[in-house]
Design a protein around this nucleic acid. Structure first.
Lengths: 338, 338
DNA sequence: AACAGGATCCGAAACGTTTTGGAGGAATAG
DNA sequence: CTATTCCTCCAAAACGTTTCGGATCCTGTT
């Protein structure tokens, strides 16, 4: 491994000059610089990021903290797309990304903060963390710059990116109402998720705007899990057969609800319409294809990275980025549509 | 940030002693060690990985090189599951993983080797790299320890993990033959993929074993892409309507083939049976559900990481790990099955 | 009493960079 | 001719750790 020192020797200059030449400083003669660059290329010089990071006290690395990077979470390609988005921006601006996952068996032996500090990441992006995660606040209160996905906390060092979940939910419910539905149930996620709160709010507002009653007992939590949503939908449909439509806080849960509907011998969307949220891959491939509120997960990751790095470099005007959602009407609400 | 130096001062010992105490060396008195550990905890000491990496010349970090970590590749959850598997093992043994993707716009400005050296990763795992990728050989020939997924190259510093693709393909074709099919076509990936070669080999062998002819013109390349596979299947079915079954080298392509079959007004599996390879999530959710040869992608990542780290620590007995596959019979070959 | 050997500790070098504060000389201004 | 400024370069310190090669002291042996 050739170092800056080798180049200095070969070029007959000091290591200071090599460093400054390679980093584009102005106080080095163009001829010298060219010579140094040539020699560096010739010797196949590759800078040592560790050494640089040590002295500069930054690593040009950001951490992506995700929870539940498990085998199962592949269904829900949310995490993956966010990751791809983060990766895209990060490599555009020549940063690196290291992945911290808390699913491992030795979970929580080290806290996020410790992980971040140990690895000397310049900042972090947190995705899929529950709002009641004790370590969430730890990292937020540490002075590590971070960007949260779908958790609205803002401070000097903290920003977030999310979508307009209230409006998204409204779009879904309005869609159902336009189709003539009046008796609409909701399968929400869980209490400790910001998006659940917001989507519930949107659900209720949309009903009220249409002059429909909000029946609390038609609202259940499905924990963002397919089977639990299926059970809850089964229960609701058995108690309240008058329900004609479901709004679900995630596509995976919507798929569960569809199973429940089918299990009761009813048809989707004829007897019961179902709309989900997220637009995961499965949504367009399942049968019937699933109507949903699409959010651009890739963009969320991309924007999160962009925001974080802007913050790191002190040129972030705002710490908040809100993306829009889009209604995708498919077979689970509209018969015969593609 | 407290350093080893602060601890030394607080404990009234030298930094050497602190270092050795914290790292469990024997030449430090137990009382001293305890005192140092207490103080370290008290001061909330977190070791600086950069400094350590610099002097030890290793980073306890491995690189995961993937190609095409794009929005689209989410369909094919292969990459994601491998990544999850790698992550799992890596965090079990307290390594870190940094992701290098070559999909970025400024692709190929830096080679893999450069990336690895720059970031001082101890080793790398390569996934989804084509065998004709010019940089593949660069990294293989560098002395960076690496593990390849689905590319059988072995050397002092290179190992690989893969599945038995010949046998896997045979399982698929035998399944079709057992169902009575005699006129079986194949949609392969592309030339520059080891798995394509192997699956083709298995395909032919299975036909020969059953005394069936191998018709080269019933074999097409779908480039592992859904639409291309659809086109190719369409072409084949139009020219050779006698074909009753397709073996596809990937599930995504199988989905494309099913579309083609449907487009021609034929039914799956009654008129044409289709079997894929991989067992991606979509396989079990699509309609009809897709028969396939399942490979445990998570395990591939996990084993790759395990192998790499064993190699790094000089305790790898073998550099090769071959995993098994499993036939999943579903609706696209067997009517009425779940 | 002298010595060997073990237990415990330490100073200093090393890893590869960046950066500070200035040095030397040439060109320009007065 | 002197003073100032600019251009180009450099030595050395600093970042936080590990480790090599000793140094010191104590215990037990002869």
């Amino acid at each position: 491994m050739t170092t800056i020192k080798d180049i200095a020797k070969a070029a007959g200059v000091s290591i200071t000059t090599v460093s400054r030449a390679l980093n584009g400083y102005s106080d080095v003669n163009e001829n010298t610089r060219q010579k140094i660059i040539d020699i560096a290329r010739q010797l196949n010089y590759i800078p040592n990021t560790l050494a640089r990071g040590l002295v500069m006290n930054k690593s040009k690395t950001i951490g992506l903290l995700v929870s539940g990077l498990t085998k199962e979470s592949a269904k829900d390609n949310f995490t993956f797309e966010v990751l791809a988005g983060v990766n895209e921006y990060v490599s555009e601006v020549d940063y690196d990304m290291v992945l911290f996952s808390t699913t491992s068996t030795k979970q929580r032996e080290k806290t996020y903060t410790q992980l971040c500090r140990e690895r000397r990441v310049d900042g972090a992006i947190l995705q899929g963390i529950r709002t009641d995660d004790p370590y969430l606040h730890e990292v937020v209160e540490s002075d590590i710059p971070c960007v949260l996905i779908d958790i609205p906390i803002e401070s000097r060092t903290v920003g977030y990116v999310t979508t307009d979940n209230v409006l998204g939910a409204k779009k879904a419910v309005r869609h159902l109402i336009e189709l003539g539905h009046k008796r609409i149930a909701m399968i929400n996620g869980y209490e400790y998720a910001f998006v659940s709160e917001q989507r519930l709010k949107g659900f209720k507002e949309a009903l009220l705007e249409a002059g429909l009653p909000v029946r609390e007992y038609w609202i259940a939590n499905g924990a963002f899990r397919e089977e639990i949503a299926e059970q809850e939908a089964l229960r609701l449909l058995q108690h309240y057969p008058e329900i004609t439509a479901f709004f679900c806080a995630s596509d995976l849960m919507a798929l569960g609800v569809i199973k429940a509907v089918k299990r009761l011998g009813k048809r989707v969307p004829d007897d019961v319409a179902v709309i989900g949220y997220d637009d995961i891959i499965l949504a367009s491939y399942s049968s019937p294809s699933l109507s949903t509120i699409a959010q651009d997960k890739f963009a969320m990751g991309y924007e999160a990275a962009k925001l974080l790095i802007a913050m790191l470099e002190g040129k972030a005007d705002s710490h908040i980025k809100i993306l829009q959602t889009e209604l995708k009407a498919r077979e689970s609400t509209v018969k015969g549509i593609k």
